[in-house]
Design a protein around this nucleic acid. Structure first.
Lengths: 172, 172
DNA sequence: CCCGCATTGGGATTCAATCTCAAACACGCC
DNA sequence: GGCGTGTTTGAGATTGAATCCCAATGCGGG
C-alpha cells in the first residue's frame, strides 16, 4: 500500500507540473477530480467519474470533469479507450505498461494484454509504408472463457452479470 | 472491368439471398442503395452515401440509408470501421481480404495493410487467455510519408489537402 | 488587497444515430 | 389481376455523448 501511495504522489506531482508548465491554474475541482480518478481501478467514462465526484462535492459540473479528464490525458496520467459502444473510457496511463484489450461481447469484461512481438511487427509494417506511428489501438472482440462455459448449456446470460460494455454492432 | 461486373453480380445475389433468408422484402430503395454502395471505393459514412443516393432519388430518406447499410453489414457485404472521429465508416467486405488501417492524423489518408504474422500472434494471445475472438481491429495513427516531407520545412498543411478524417484527440 | 484573466457551471447546442408512427408498398394468396 | 396483411419507408422527434457559450467566480501575481 505504501508503494501505491508513493505512486499517487508522483502522479500528483506530474499533474501539478503539467498545470504549471502550460500556464494553467490549480483549482479545488481539479485536485478533487484527480484524487478521485487516482482512487479508481476500472475503465470509466466521464459520466462515471462525474457520478463519483458529486458524491464528494455536488457543486462540481459535468463539463469540468470532461475538461479535467482531457487535462489528465494531456499530462500523461490518463488514456482514452473505446470499446465500441460509442463512449470514451479512461484508464490509468502513468506507470502502466502499454497494453491492448480483449472485450467480451457477452459479459463486457475487458482483458488487458501485451505482446512485444505484435508491437515490433506493427512498427515493422509501419516502416514498410514510411509511416511514422504516434500511437495505436488493437482490440479483439469475442467471448471470454467464463462465458464460453456459461453459454455451452443455455443461452441465458450468466446470473448477475451486467455487461458494462454493451456492444451493439460489430465494429471492426 | 468484366471481372468487376461479375463481382457485383455475386454481391447482388448475396444481398438478395440475405433478404430472402431473413424473411425481408426487396425494395427499390434497398436496390438503389446497394447499387450505389457497390459503385464506391472509399470509406464512407451513412451520410456520405445518403448524399450520393439522393442525387439519384431525392425521395430516399436518411434513415433508410442507415438501415440498409446495417443490412449490408449483416449480409457480409460491408464492414463498419471507425477512425476516431466519432463517425462510422463503411468499406466493402465481400471478397476483400481482412486488413487493418494506418490513419494519417495530418491529411486523413487511410492506408490499408495486412500482416499474417500479426494475425497469428493475435490468435495466439487470445488462446492464451481462453478467449474466442470473433473479430478485431488494429489501427495505427501517425504521419504518412507524404506529410512527413511536407511538415519538414513548414508546419503548413499540404496545399489543397482536406483531411477527410479529422482526429481531434488521441484515441488509443 | 486588488485586478486581470483563467476557470467554472449549467443551460443551450451540436452531431451522429436511433426511435416513432402513419402512410406507402411488397408479396403471398385467391 | 386485385385483395389483405405485415413489412418498409420517411420526416420529424428523440436520444446520448460531448462541446459550446457566457456570466459569475476565484486564483494568483504584483
Amino acid at each position: 500500500m505504501a508503494k501505491k501511495k508513493d505512486n499517487f504522489e508522483v502522479e500528483r506531482t506530474i499533474f501539478l507540473d503539467h498545470i504549471q508548465a502550460t500556464g494553467l491554474r490549480r483549482t479545488g475541482q481539479r485536485d478533487l477530480i484527480l484524487e478521485i480518478f487516482l482512487s479508481t481501478e476500472e475503465h470509466l467514462t466521464s459520466e462515471d467519474l462525474y457520478g463519483l465526484v458529486i458524491k464528494k462535492d455536488p457543486s462540481v459540473g459535468l463539463t469540468t470533469v470532461y475538461r479535467t479528464l482531457k487535462l489528465l490525458t494531456e499530462a500523461g496520467l490518463a488514456r482514452e479507450v473505446r470499446f465500441g459502444d460509442n463512449k470514451t473510457y479512461y484508464e490509468h496511463h502513468y506507470n502502466h505498461e502499454h497494453h491492448d484489450h480483449m472485450i467480451c461481447t457477452d459479459c463486457g469484461k475487458v482483458i488487458e494484454f501485451f505482446s512485444p512481438d505484435i508491437e515490433s511487427l506493427q512498427d515493422q509494417m509501419a516502416s514498410n509504408f514510411g509511416f511514422r506511428p504516434t500511437h495505436h489501438s488493437l482490440r479483439m472482440w469475442g467471448v471470454c472463457s467464463e462465458c464460453q462455459k456459461n453459454t455451452a448449456d443455455s443461452h441465458t446470460a450468466p446470473p448477475g452479470a451486467q455487461p458494462r460494455v454493451r456492444v451493439k454492432t460489430a465494429i471492426h
